[in-house]
């Protein structure tokens, strides 16, 4: 995406030579970003399909395994992410107002919240390792559950792992933005990159909003 953002040496400075004006450039960037998010939806869509199919065939195994996830950590993380979406919105707002210091502040806050999320995720993964609930050679079928609970954990790790990867990329992008913002690269006239990364961040957030109920909540207390 970085193409449209980087400043070339034409007038105005942010305008890349092959666009007619900034308006067209901005339109191109946001259209591009939306298309990209569509591909992301389909990317996760494949795994959601697999999850739904197997959940239907192995309901009890999945519900049982789902109960082994730590719902408090999951809920905490959900709150953290929602908060981070808020700070992201504020960062975009600050950019649109040209408040340089505030942009950096909100971006850093967002990064911090993102990092908290990942930290909690590490704790959760560690627990799974300790309990031999990681699929593969060392997997031990949890007591009282059918062996297909392994499938649940396979999907759990694939889905949350892919999500975490997106978070890591997101934090990298935020760091890049913060550095640029500090140098004063964004003005009320031109802050497309902040806008675009904002879209991406909200998207990653929304994925979690689907993952959390699907993995942690559905079927709880039915045992």
């Amino acid at each position: 995406m970085s193409d449209a953002h980087a400043a070339a040496h034409a007038t105005p400075p942010e305008l890349r030579h092959h666009f007619v004006d900034l308006e067209a450039q901005k339109e191109a960037s946001s259209l591009g970003m939306w298309m990209f998010l569509v591909t992301e939806v389909l990317f996760f869509g494949g795994m959601f399909t697999a999850y739904v199919v197997y959940r239907a065939s192995y309901r009890r195994a999945f519900e049982g395994a789902s109960n082994l996830l730590d719902i408090r950590l999951g809920a905490f993380n959900t709150a953290v992410l929602i908060l981070s979406s808020l700070t992201m919105v504020l960062a975009v707002w600050a950019a649109s107002q040209g408040k340089k210091k505030l942009i950096v502040l909100f971006l850093l806050l967002t990064m911090l919240l993102g990092a908290t999320f990942l930290g909690v995720k590490v704790v959760e993964y560690k627990q799974k390792f300790d309990h031999h609930e990681v699929p593969g050679a060392h997997f031990v079928v949890p007591k009282g559950l059918a062996p297909q609970s392994e499938l649940f954990f396979s999907l759990y790790f694939c889905m949350t792992g892919l999500h975490a990867l997106h978070m890591i990329i997101g934090i990298g992008l935020l760091a890049w933005l913060a550095a640029k913002a500090r140098r004063g690269a964004f003005t009320p006239r031109y802050y497309t990159p902040v806008d675009m990364v904002g879209l991406y961040w909200h998207f990653v957030d929304i994925v979690w909003i689907f993952l959390f109920p699907l993995l942690y909540l559905l079927g709880r207390n039915t045992l």
Partner: peptide, 29 residues
């Protein structure tokens, strides 16, 4: 393309970590 990308990624992951997602021996389809 995203769908084949994720599918092949699952195949690779399954082969490496025995996830069982497509392996009937572990309940996969």
């Amino acid at each position: 393309t995203p769908v084949i990308a994720i599918t092949l990624l699952l195949v690779a992951a399954e082969r490496l970590f025995h996830l069982g997602i497509f392996d009937p021996a572990q309940g996969g389809d």
